[in-house]
Design a protein around this nucleic acid. Structure first.
Length: 272
DNA sequence: TACAATGTTTTAAG
DNA sequence: CCTTAAAACATTGT
């Protein structure tokens, strides 16, 4: 479920715990979300008595600083963060509960595609150094996008936008939204874009990221009807232009587009 | 019952 | 080495 804006939203849910100290940690050592955690047995000791200091997000990644170390996480498909009362008793899918002085920080994830790790200060520094430029940063330039389009010339645009190494935080609905606003067919090959089209794509990446963070990332408001977002899941959904939306698997994911606003070309391979 | 779900990784194949 | 498709992961909801 969570993409850029949803991740930002969930990370903020723990803000009320900032400044409080850890009193107890509960987790299921066998839960799949800890499969990348090589130091799980030490978590209780590592966290004990530490103060929750600050939150951090980058694309779909999130991290929370306790003292000098960081709890790093990814929500996968069904992960959620929420704040419970201090004595919260974990329910079936509450795989990690960090009890604080007055509240409890809870990670819930039924499908367990998410991942959680503990990073020491030095591991954190290494991790941060390897991150891709955020879409809304000055470092996310048109040149960077153009290079990527060229290097992945035969990849469908839909699959391209889902690659986190260049588009951190873009997920299924944001990719569809960006392509729809760019007037680009999701099955267009990355290398086929004119300079004008790639400039438009760059601009819409930024626009959708900015608007999503503002609308969903703050309080999970419903986006305006002018977004594709509100129409794309409905069977028989219509583009605001009045054309019935199409749905098909592109780049391995369910993709929604408007055949009129996002016209097929020779390299969209029969997908109209 | 069968299939799909806003994600990532691994495997296999071209 | 690069690209791509498919499978796998685990659970819930339609």
């Amino acid at each position: 479920m969570p993409e850029l804006a949803e991740v930002a939203y969930y990370a903020k849910q723990w803000d009320a715990g900032i400044g409080q100290h850890v009193t107890k940690v509960q987790l299921h050592p066998e839960a799949r979300i800890f499969r990348q955690a090589d130091n799980l047995a030490e978590w209780t000791d590592l966290l004990a008595g530490r103060r929750y200091e600050e939150r951090w997000t980058h694309g779909k990644q999130m991290a929370f600083r306790f003292g000098k170390g960081w709890l790093w996480g990814h929500l996968g498909m069904t992960g959620k963060l929420w704040m419970a009362e201090r004595d919260h008793v974990p329910e079936k899918h509450d795989h990690l509960v960090i009890h604080l002085t007055r509240h409890a920080l809870v990670v819930t994830d039924p499908r367990m595609f998410g991942a959680w790790r503990w990073l020491s200060a030095s591991a954190w520094a290494t991790h941060e150094a390897g991150l891709a430029p955020p879409i809304l940063s000055d470092a996310f330039t048109k040149g960077l996008l153009n290079d990527f389009l060229k290097r992945r010339a035969r990849t469908p645009l839909k699959a391209l936008l889902l690659q986190q190494e260049r588009f951190p935080g873009i997920g299924n609905w944001m990719a569809d939204e960006i392509l729809w606003r760019s007037g680009l067919h999701p099955n267009r090959q990355a290398g086929s874009l004119s300079p004008k089209e790639s400039g438009l794509l760059w601009q819409k990446c930024r626009l959708v990221a900015r608007q999503a963070l503002r609308v969903i990332g703050t309080d999970w408001s419903t986006p305006p009807n002018s977004w594709l977002f509100n129409h794309r899941w409905k069977d028989g959904g219509q583009c605001p232009c009045g054309t019935p939306l199409r749905r098909a698997s592109v780049g391995g994911r369910t993709t929604c587009w408007c055949p009129r606003c996002q016209p097929a070309t020779t390299e969209t391979d029969g997908l109209t």
